[in-house]
Design a protein around this nucleic acid. Structure first.
Lengths: 244, 244
DNA sequence: CAGTGGTCTAGACCACTCC
DNA sequence: GAGTGGTCTAGACCACTGG
């Protein structure tokens, strides 16, 4: 038995391993999709028993940081928010066919951050922003209007990107063009009324009721990357929850 | 080594133990708040190693079915939806003092179930319902109007209960007066406009925008107990989510 | 086939709770 | 101090994946 001094750091070993691995992932030691060393190798590296690293890996998998697949290995999870916004809206998939939303970029401009957005993005007031405005459609019908704010420096390549190269999903574009990978996000749902620009994009009356989803997206190291406000027609909004 | 035939049931032992314990709990072998036998005792009963029952108990704790407390024991969790509705609404707690909502019963009557509610409650169309209408307030200000439908037979004692004996929370009342314990619930958030009765209760204009939360509450054996529609002023609605 | 994670066991000691 | 869950170890075999 190598050391038998659980109390040396006061924190359980498996938690320290969990933290160590989290830090390694945040540092970028393994990119999303990469495989970690095998359980055996990790146990040797950390000088602990197999069961201990298993406990740490299991916890990280439960947190959504890792994917474990028998016979394959343990992988850094690539979060897929693909069409996460659309979980809020009923879209008429009469036949159960998963409808693929599309996106159209309506506007792109540089502005300066007001205090609110600066705080959300970890910038200073007056710092330069890249602002996108786009509409997302299902079956040609507009479902969501989105105002997106980005640090203009960090996302400079997007300013020059042809409008039709943005694609239907932005996060893969951020990663491909700017090397910025979104790891998690936090959202707030509110109810609001459509401003002129939003109303026009959605094809509803000005001041029509809309559901507003504010999202801040973060990199794996915790730095905020994007702040986004998405608006959809209130009468299409429906969101399900389970309570235990 | 007692048996060494993992494959006898084809399902991992810890999953079978998990299922067995879930069934026992649903059957009411232990009431909410009761302690389960110790890990040691369970391991002996099931004829498996300690680690195996630990894995099952840990999973059940993660699901929210059990509470485990070091030095105390493992307990059947009593779900506490206390003021769960209010997680949807900003209530002005300027000093961070947790404001305690109150409730006032405005109406109580017998009706018959239409097809929709019958389906929600597992009844037949035309079966007798007990319908409650109440308003919930914070600091004297109405925040939620609630329409509640119950099986009149199952909840017969409520028909006779004095209005001021309902208390601020219904679920404890259901359990105390009718022996009906709520174990979980599922909700759908929508956006709607205030009907006359709701508008009056909330002190807003008719057709004012409201957030509507539909909730079906279930007993531990999965039987639906209550269907409830709660309405609150749309401009006070705010709900936070985390995405990973 | 070798290598990976998944399950299971057996037994040790630690940390907390309550009498 | 007795009893509980929490941590850790060491080693076995199973089930799946890929060359």
């Amino acid at each position: 038995m190598p050391s038998r001094e659980t109390g040396n750091g006061r924190l359980p070993i498996y938690l320290r391993i969990q933290d160590a691995l989290t830090a390694e992932i945040a540092r970028g030691a393994w990119r999303p999709g990469d495989a970690l060393p095998s359980e055996d190798a990790l146990a040797r590296d950390f000088g602990v028993a197999l069961g201990t690293v298993r406990k740490a890996l299991g916890a990280l998998a439960a947190e959504g940081k890792l994917d474990r697949r028998q016979g394959r290995g343990t992988f850094v999870r690539r979060p897929d928010f693909g069409n996460a916004m659309f979980r809020f809206f009923r879209h008429a998939d009469a036949d159960g066919v998963p409808l693929r939303p599309t996106a159209r970029l309506l506007a792109r401009r540089r502005t300066r951050a007001d205090a609110g957005i600066a705080a959300k993005l970890g910038l200073a007031r007056g710092d330069e922003l890249l602002e996108l405005f786009r509409v997302r459609l299902i079956d040609g019908e507009p479902i969501l209007a989105e105002e997106i704010a980005l640090d203009a420096r960090r996302f400079a390549p997007l300013a020059a990107l042809p409008a039709d190269a943005f694609g239907d999903l932005l996060y893969p574009t951020y990663e491909r063009v700017c090397g910025a990978a979104v790891a998690r996000a936090s959202e707030i749902i509110r109810f609001d009324r459509a401003a002129t620009r939003v109303a026009k994009a959605l094809g509803v009356a000005r001041d029509a009721p809309v559901a507003a989803i504010e999202r801040t997206a973060f990199a794996i190291d915790g730095a905020p990357l994007e702040f986004r406000r998405s608006y959809g027609p209130a009468e299409r909004f429906a969101y399900a929850l389970e309570l235990k």
